[in-house]
Design a protein around this nucleic acid. Structure first.
Length: 271
DNA sequence: ATGACTGCCTCTGGCAGA
């Protein structure tokens, strides 16, 4: 066991992962399994759907993870877990709208890397107020990511962006044509983040597309591989230079009581 | 095909999700 453990750490860099778990209470066994089997240094969670007092921090501590979290009743909610240390919280609100009370943002520092865990609004139905909220949230995110970039710390902004960036990122453009996830205004807002200098880690390593992170529970979408890519990890220039691998833990979508999202991860050379 | 499924809190049906 000791040899295997050491080998893994010789051959692996720092793994930072994101998982929209769709309910931390319902998903806890699956989540603990995934953490123990893939052992990311940092894991960002979205849709914990838990109030702060019900967050199962003890369960994570038992397997060596410390956490910070930002929950609310019934829906939304984000958390950041780190292997062997407590993430240092930087902020728990996306700046720019004091009236936004959704728990969709959590930012921390772990070993000198700035980690922003996001759960971007879905925006359906569109057009309408929910889509307007999505676009406003994306503009606030752009502003804040520019602020982080100015600080010149190595940074990664990852989570459920609820945006299908390009046609190559969806099994059927026709089926999703009117969905908020791939409206031109949402895609343009995502594209602006990349134009500002952030790197979409999964995309640069899979330029031909066809990588999915989400499969609907309905209509046999998983069995038919009807998915799309909406969970993203955006890297600052310094971290982009250290990127060695990125991927999707697809098999976890096929397990019992799975989330409708699969985990995504990046691996970085030690800085 | 105006479908399909899942989690949450519970007014056990309505909302939210994507």
């Amino acid at each position: 066991m000791r040899v295997r453990f050491q080998l893994r750490h010789l051959t692996r860099g720092v793994r930072i992962a994101s998982f929209n778990i769709n309910g931390i209470k319902a998903r806890l066994p699956r989540l603990l399994e995934w953490l123990e089997e893939t052992r990311p240094a940092v894991a960002c969670l979205q849709e914990i759907k838990s109030q702060d007092e019900n967050f199962p921090a003890d369960e994570f501590e038992k397997i060596g993870y410390q956490a910070i979290w930002h929950g609310q009743k019934s829906f939304n909610g984000v958390a950041i877990l780190a292997d062997g240390q407590e993430p240092t919280e930087i902020r728990r609100e996306l700046p720019g709208d004091a009236d936004d009370d959704h728990a969709r943002y959590l930012e921390a520092e772990v070993k000198g890397v700035r980690i922003a865990c996001i759960y971007l609004p879905n925006g359906n139905p569109q057009p309408g107020p929910k889509f307007d909220y999505k676009l406003r949230w994306m503009e606030r995110l752009r502003q804040h990511m520019a602020t982080i970039a100015q600080e010149e710390v190595p940074a990664i902004v990852l989570g459920d962006y609820n945006v299908i960036p390009e046609d190559k990122d969806v099994w059927s453009t026709a089926a999703m044509a009117t969905d908020a996830l791939m409206q031109p205004a949402a895609r343009d807002a995502y594209r602006r983040l990349l134009n500002d200098g952030w790197t979409d880690a999964i995309d640069v390593l899979n330029p031909r597309g066809g990588v999915w992170t989400y499969w609907d529970y309905q209509a046999g979408a998983w069995q038919r591989d009807h998915g799309f890519r909406i969970d993203h990890a955006l890297l600052s220039p310094e971290l982009a230079d250290r990127l060695v691998a990125a991927g999707v833990d697809k098999a976890y979508r096929g397990r019992e009581k799975a989330s409708d999202h699969a985990p995504v991860w990046v691996e970085l050379r030690d800085g």
